[in-house]
């Protein structure tokens, strides 16, 4: 028992685990979420719901009149702060915990790889991050899923929409990244 305890402590203080171990555990976590919450692991629905509730709070008439709310009521999925929102909060704290336990915190404004290609400007990186993240979320909601919701949860359910989405999304992302960092060498991670 004592030795097992030490092994556990050793494992959580490591900066990285094998991707196959991590992938297997995420797969098992998806069994857990289907079995206990009747939900697939996904991130972006919570953002959509939080945004909808923000609209409704800012413009009270909107919840009555805007077609979004009518459509979601008809689907039986009105915006709510629920399991999915707390999943997002949990991901933040889980990563924080893992990074703390292994001393792998990176309080970076500009990733070194970005800096080598686009310069050290903090504002350039942050405005690019803000805009690209907004576009990414917009796309995820158009398609009703992201790397988690479609890429992992949808693919493992053998959903046609998910395999279609993740193939095209990664294809476009690969072309974009190859073009952006063309001529750059292999980066030390």
């Amino acid at each position: 028992m004592h030795q097992q305890g030490e092994k556990m402590i050793d494992a959580v203080s490591q900066k990285s685990w094998s991707p196959y171990v991590v992938g297997s555990l995420i797969g098992i976590l998806s069994w857990f979420s289907f079995a206990t919450a009747d939900k697939p692991l996904g991130i972006t629905t919570a953002f959509e719901h939080a945004a909808a509730l923000t609209w409704a709070a800012a413009i009270p008439d909107m919840a009555e009149q805007h077609p979004y709310f009518a459509a979601k009521r008809a689907e039986g999925k009105p915006p709510i702060i629920g399991w999915e929102a707390m999943l997002v909060v949990g991901v933040f704290f889980g990563a924080l915990l893992s990074a703390r336990l292994s001393g792998d915190q990176n309080r970076l404004w500009v990733p070194p790889m970005w800096e080598r290609r686009f310069g050290p400007s903090k504002w350039k990186r942050l405005s690019a991050a803000f805009l690209s993240a907004a576009l990414m979320m917009f796309g995820a909601r158009l398609a009703q899923g992201c790397t988690s919701g479609h890429g992992i949860s949808g693919s493992l359910q053998l959903a046609v929409s998910s395999w279609l989405f993740i193939s095209i999304a990664f294809g476009v992302a690969i072309l974009t990244a190859l073009a952006m960092y063309r001529g750059q060498g292999v980066q030390d991670v």
Partner: peptide
């Protein structure tokens, strides 16, 4: 959605 997502994720 996939096209927006892909460009956004890469940047």
């Amino acid at each position: 959605g996939a096209v927006c997502f892909g460009v956004g994720m890469a940047v």
